[in-house]
Design a protein around this nucleic acid. Structure first.
Length: 914
RNA sequence: GGGCCGGUAGCUCAGCCUGGUAUGAGCGCCGCCCUCGCAAGGCGGAGGCCGCGGGUUCAAAUCCCGCCCGGUCCA
């Protein structure tokens, strides 16, 4: 094993007289042209030196800088690639795209898909939540930024370029095209590791700002059995060389624009179209720009990780500009809120345009987080402006670069408005809750809300402690919020259990190593019902053939059943590219023998109807509800199917009818359904990421299913050759399975007919019961229900009457036992009658004991002023007559077992009194 | 995917911990009184499958399990 000591001297460094130095502050190595330089250029070793004096001669806008970059690399042989969606549909290991290289993981890097160009250049909007608390404060952190990049994929035997060229491109672009000063540029060596890959890397620094990172991905995490001679160690982990070496660069678009403008913060440079109107609207005082500049400059030197760090920063800035910390806070805070709002809403615009639906899970939750954070900031600023208005500013400013914003504008604004309303309701509900809690606390004589309540309010009701304080303040209750509140919340959440292990494969993968791929007859002819094949192998109860028309379970479609040589097939699964058939009598199969297969066609054709029907329905959903609708899952059965879609509100009855009508129209139009195998990248370029409706699809070539002019998806299922064969499509019902996800349950073909007949027969049977025609059922049922309620009330009233009679009758039976008045009797009635009677007979100094001979209920009441407890007396009854019971001091009830002992039990109670 | 909170009258909720009468509370609704009329006030009244299903118990709104619905936090 060798520790990594990579030679990072490139052609340019050697030929152009660059010097490798060690930073006298941080001790890290860096390259420079300036013989007098002693520091690496990276804060905190160096300070920002461009605020107020731009480091680039010409002032650039976002668009100009992006074009300068992409244009430069295009001129240098790179293919220009359109940005990818920020919601990565092509992978399921991350929630959002946080870097340009993520566009090409895992398929391009693993070699399973070709890059759209090689080398290529791209400007990729990237979203990261790790620094969200710093956004607005430090002047440089964003949740959304554009990572401009040039990538080269060096596949084995097909090298493109590596370090020498990368460093030269960067230098040429910065100095020639942007006019930066070469001697102020430093290349800091900073080996990089992350996401299972690693390699040497340079940070490119200029005037105290990191403007680019050049990473050379050439190692991957070592597998356990890696030979020790190949292993290198980076940052404590073991790696081995990769077959494909990737040039992964990242140039901060916003930072370069900032550099060219020298504004106090990066936000002023790129988000002015939101920042300026908000400042005006909020009516905040214009502050001395020097304060913001000083703040940015010093913030550049800090890594703010908690409130403590922020306080240190505040103190230093206040010192430097000569005002108090309070004055500084008051002046700077509104700016910080506005900056954060501008950034968050921009991130949101990208997320919503790319199909993220706010919800309580995954990326949807992050969208909701941004919405709520922005709303809170607006509240704090005292602004009444709806969030959608700010979203509209982004769309207006950015739609020339991103026309998809305009296309989605209505949906985006609608989503934000709905979310805003929803949050208002949450806050309303929440403050009511807090007020009730406060009333309780006041009763208990407390004047402070305990911490565990604050955590409960936040975790269960979405109320931040600041909001709780706001409400409590009005009621005169104190709220103490610890600095580490959110850390405490996180600690609470850590107390969660572990996950269960997934069950293993049904057949050991090793055993299938030498078996050739099974020929998939169901793809060649999806209507094939019978076939012949050769038995290749029998493993346990699984039979492997050279070819099969049995569809194995996958993609939400259940496997086919049927017969092989007359033996029942119980299950069909796919392991790698080998298909396994589990049969009832495996001993009937010999390797090398012929086999004749027959697919259970009733089952299979229903699966196909439902599968093709799903795609037809999907097309209708997108057209009626909007382009934000994506498939979030689906499962087919023989008699019904379900389709889960991303949508931000419940689907209305009218929409549902429209969807159903549209889907059935496409059926009746009998549109052709075609499928073809396409290389991944080609399919993506031709149809876009809408392909990945069914989730991530593996493989170099993918199967694309195309319903003419209606719907295109990557899909591995079996389909009908035209839509007419689906038969009727009937939506049965919808469910909301979680926020932002609607489930549509539907049936196609015979299943739809069955369902309609079933419904009709339910109606018929019900009309027979009520003896009215079906169309009169609703009102009739209502009438019956009302009459039933009336009758129930009448029964209750009669019960009370009965109790009154009992009371009247029993009143005369009172007898004296010592100085206690006693009424004991065996009567008729249920427990409610008895209780009612015992209660109305109850008066000071009197004990009533009643037992019902028909229901075996027993009730005892004890009047005020007596030492006796009703519960004890009822236990005397049950000890004599069996059963059990109990109750309070004044009233107790129970049930006895032996009615013959009822009189005796009453006597026992009487004796106890005496 | 994991966790937490909630579902009781038309609405907002109390009661649940510690099983034993739903006199439930406020608002709203209806009637009467007061008033020229309205509001306010006073008096009276209607309005509950205590989310659904199972279990424990003599007894469940209350305890246990499952499901459905709503809310919310985290990854």
């Amino acid at each position: 094993m060798v520790k990594m000591s990579m030679d990072m001297s490139t052609r340019m460094f050697k030929e152009e007289g660059w010097i490798r130095k060690t930073c006298k502050v941080c001790g890290k190595p860096f390259w420079t042209l300036d013989p007098d330089r002693e520091t690496c250029g990276d804060p905190p070793c160096d300070e920002y030196a461009f605020i107020g004096k731009p480091g680039i001669p010409k002032k650039y806008s976002l668009e100009e800088m992006r074009e300068a970059f992409l244009g430069f690399f295009e001129r240098h042989g790179h293919g220009r690639v359109k940005r990818y969606p920020v919601l990565p549909r092509w992978r399921d290991d991350v929630l959002l795209v946080g870097a340009s290289i993520m566009d090409f993981q895992p398929w391009v890097i693993s070699g399973e898909a070709d890059p759209p160009a090689n080398p290529l250049t791209i400007s990729q909007p990237s979203i990261r939540f790790t620094d969200i608390d710093n956004v607005g404060i430090t002047g440089r952190h964003f949740t959304i930024f554009e990572m401009m990049a040039h990538h080269a994929f060096n596949y084995p035997g097909r090298p493109i370029y590596w370090m020498d060229e990368t460093v030269e491109y960067a230098y040429e672009f910065f100095t020639k095209d942007l006019g930066m000063k070469g001697e102020d540029i430093t290349f800091k060596e900073n080996p990089w590791a992350g996401g299972g890959n690693a390699g040497p890397a340079f940070e490119v620094l200029y005037r105290g700002l990191e403007v680019a990172t050049l990473v050379f991905m050439q190692y991957k995490l070592a597998p356990p059995n890696a030979s020790p001679s190949r292993i290198v160690e980076i940052k404590g982990d073991k790696y081995v060389p990769m077959e494909t070496r990737v040039v992964d660069t990242g140039y901060g678009l916003e930072r370069l624009v900032w550099m060219s403008q020298g504004t106090p913060t990066a936000y002023d440079a790129v988000l002015g179209y939101v920042v300026e109107p908000l400042k005006k609207e909020a009516g905040i005082e214009k502050i001395d720009e020097r304060i913001l500049m000083e703040n940015s400059r010093l913030a550049g030197m800090f890594d703010i990780e908690d409130m403590g760090d922020l306080r240190v920063l505040r103190r230093e800035v206040a010192n430097k500009v000569g005002i108090s910390v309070e004055e500084l806070e008051k002046a700077v805070h509104p700016y910080e809120l506005i900056y954060a709002i501008a950034d968050h809403t921009k991130a949101l615009t990208f997320m919503l345009a790319d199909g993220v639906i706010p919800s309580n899970v995954k990326a949807g939750y992050l969208a909701r987080l941004l919405i709520r954070k922005s709303i809170r900031h607006l509240r704090e600023l005292g602004l009444q402006m709806p969030l959608s208005e700010i979203m509209a500013m982004h769309i207006k400013a950015l739609h020339r670069t991103y026309p998809e914003f305009k296309e989605m504008e209505d949906v985006i604004l609608d989503i934000v408005s709905i979310e805003e309303k929803r949050y208002q309701e949450t806050l309303k509900r929440g403050s009511d809750l807090v007020r009730r809690e406060i009333a309780k606390l006041k009763k208990a004589g407390k004047d402070e809300i305990p911490l565990e309540k604050l955590i409960l309010f936040y975790e269960s009701h979405g109320l931040t402690p600041e909001i709780v304080r706001e409400v409590a303040g009005k009621e005169g209750i104190r709220v103490h919020i610890p600095d580490n509140f959110y850390t405490l919340v996180a600690k609470e959440a850590e107390k969660t259990g572990e996950k269960e292990e997934k069950a293993g494969e049904m057949v050991d993968f090793e055993l299938l190593q030498d078996i050739p791929d099974t020929r998939t007859l169901y793809y060649e002819d999806p209507m094939m019902k019978e076939f012949e094949a050769n038995v290749l192998k029998v493993i346990g109860e699984w039979v492997i053939l050279d070819q099969t028309a049995f569809y194995p379970e996958g993609g939400g479609q259940p496997c086919d059943l049927g017969e092989l040589n007359g033996v029942r097939v119980l299950d069909v699964q796919k392991v790698g590219k080998v298909i396994l058939h589990r049969v009832e009598r495996p001993e009937a199969f010999k390797e090398g023998a012929k086999a004749r297969g027959r697919v259970d066609w009733e089952r299979r054709i229903q699966h196909m109807r439902h599968h093709t029907g799903t795609h037809v329905l999907m097309g209708a959903l997108v057209r009626v509800l909007g382009k934000h609708v994506w498939q979030a899952g689906s499962q087919l059965h023989t008699d019904w199917a379900r389709l889960d879609i991303a949508h931000y509100k419940r689907i209305s009855e009218e929409e549902l009818r429209e969807i159903e009508r549209l889907a059935n129209r496409v059926v009746m139009e009998n549109r052709p359904v075609r499928w073809e195998w396409l290389p991944r990248t080609e399919a993506e370029m031709r149809y876009g990421f809408r392909l990945y409706q069914g989730g991530v699809v593996p493989g170099r070539i993918i199967r694309v299913l195309n319903i003419k002019d209606w719907d295109v998806q990557a899909c591995g299922g079996t389909h009908l050759p035209n839509t007419g064969l689906i038969g009727p499509i009937k939506i049965l019902r919808t469910e909301r399975i979680q926020d932002g996800v609607e489930r549509i349950i539907f049936a196609c073909g015979e299943a739809a007919i069955n369902w309609m007949q079933e419904t009709e027969s339910i109606l018929k049977r019900t009309s027979e019961v009520f003896r009215v025609p079906p169309e009169k059922l609703p009102e009739t049922a209502e009438r019956f229900f009302n009459e039933w309620k009336e009758a129930r009330k009448e029964a209750e009233r009669l019960k009370k009457e009965l109790a009154k009679l009992l009371v009247y009758e029993l009143e005369g039976k009172a007898e004296k036992v010592g100085n206690i008045e006693f009424i004991g009797a065996v009567v008729e009635g249920d427990i409610d009658n008895l209780r009612e009677a015992a209660l109305s007979l109850r008066k000071p100094g009197r004990v009533v004991a009643l037992i019902s001979e028909d229901t075996k209920a027993a009730v005892v009441s004890v009047g005020d002023g007596l030492e006796l407890k009703a519960g004890d007396l009822v236990r005397i009854i049950t000890s004599v007559a069996g059963g059990g019971g109990g109750g309070r001091k004044e009233l107790a009830q129970g049930k006895i077992k032996n009615i013959l002992k009822a009189e005796e039990a009453i006597e026992a109670v009487k004796k106890r009194l005496g």
